[in-house]
């Protein structure tokens, strides 16, 4: 069951540019375990959407199956949501986006949902560069089916039951970069400071934006020996940058040293300002990013921040040259060639 939250009117709550308070971006009360990392990510999505002043109903939330995939019920209660089938969120999101290019698409998935059953669709949605935000709430286990290891569990990581994972982990962020995803970020559910601007930047990025968020499962994967527990992640996290998302063209006043600060201009003129913490890493250079990720792995570090961004690549609508009007708004007049043309077609077959 999900419970409707009592809707108090808070006259003093701040409003965003389109006059909404953060309440309008919330959803019913979560039924996930208390302390579940996934809930913190939902809260970050709410915050990001509020700060971005998007109309809540212009967002569609689509997910697969899992605890993570349940979260779209608990944020953006005024948006349509679609909890589809296990591992197939990318295809449903692709279809939805084809219908209406004028909405923001949030895809929410889990590590089981994306790295195992849905790996094929994950790979192909990147290949097509669908314009969407794709968030994996990565807890290294199958939460909903009670804690089995997932394909992102680190080799040697210990489950709550005490068994040690013998297999290599699939690193979704590295894979996404390798596949050419034009926006790849990594973060931690406990780091709202970092996560909110990443989500905002992802929403503005035209094209596929992937965010791999380490999100501890307090019930099945938060024990000593697990590499996805709160304690482990806090101790091993290494940020590449702090970042700021500026929706409009700012006056360029940088207080950071040259070489430490990077600005990335997005399609609509908004700017991501990155303050680099890691040296020898360039967010617009794939090779450099892959290198940094490999280095971090060798050191047992989890590299977070906006890892890679590329604004050049055509999104799927661009590739398919779909018309400006969303396809779901076209009518008989636009779509049906009519009687006379049909008569001509008949003639070709006589």
């Amino acid at each position: 069951m999900s419970y409707l939250k009592p809707q108090f009117k808070h006259p003093k709550l701040p409003k965003n540019k389109i006059g909404y308070t953060i309440k309008e971006y919330e959803g019913p009360l979560s039924t996930l375990c208390a302390g579940c990392g996934h809930d913190s990510i939902s809260a970050a999505i709410v915050q990001a959407c509020f700060e971005m002043s998007v109309e809540p109903h212009k967002v569609a939330k689509i997910s697969g199956i899992g605890c993570s995939s349940k979260t779209p019920t608990y944020f953006l209660g005024n948006s349509h949501g679609f909890n589809s089938v296990h591992g197939r969120m990318p295809s449903v999101a692709t279809g939805a986006s084809m219908s209406n290019k004028d909405m923001v698409y949030f895809g929410v998935s889990g590590d089981g949902d994306s790295a195992s059953i849905g790996m094929g669709q994950f790979v192909h949605v990147i290949r097509r560069n669908l314009n969407m935000v794709y968030i994996v709430m990565n807890n290294g286990c199958y939460g909903l089916t009670k804690g089995q290891d997932s394909a992102t569990a680190d080799q040697g990581s210990k489950s709550k039951a005490g068994s040690v994972n013998p297999f290599q982990a699939i690193d979704l962020a590295s894979l996404a970069i390798e596949l050419g995803a034009p926006f790849v970020a990594q973060s931690f559910s406990g780091d709202k400071q970092q996560l909110v601007p990443i989500i905002k930047a992802a929403m503005h990025h035209k094209g596929f934006a992937f965010i791999n968020v380490i999100s501890p499962c307090v019930t099945f994967n938060n024990n000593a020996g697990s590499t996805k527990s709160y304690d482990y992640v806090r101790q091993h996290i290494e940020a590449t940058s702090t970042l700021d998302f500026v929706p409009e063209m700012p006056i360029i006043t940088t207080k950071y040293d040259q070489g430490k600060s990077t600005k990335v201009a997005l399609h609509d003129g908004s700017i991501i300002q990155l303050n680099k913490l890691a040296t020898d890493w360039d967010p617009e250079d794939r090779v450099s990013v892959v290198n940094a990720l490999q280095q971090a792995r060798l050191k047992n570090e989890i590299l977070t921040g906006l890892l890679y961004v590329n604004t050049e690549w055509n999104d799927l609508h661009g590739t398919l040259k779909t018309c400006k009007t969303p396809l779901n708004k076209l009518t008989e007049k636009d779509l049906c060639p009519g009687e006379e043309i049909l008569e001509g077609i008949n003639r070709n077959f006589r």
Binding site: A60, I62, F82, S84, V85, R88, P90, S91, V92, A93, T94, G95, A96, S97, M98, S99, N100, G120, Q121, H124, L327, N328
Partner: peptide, 13 residues
């Protein structure tokens, strides 16, 4: 599988 997922996503929208 993906083809049908796309069909369903489009119709839903």
């Amino acid at each position: 599988l993906a083809a049908m997922g796309m069909v369903i996503g489009s119709n839903w929208n």
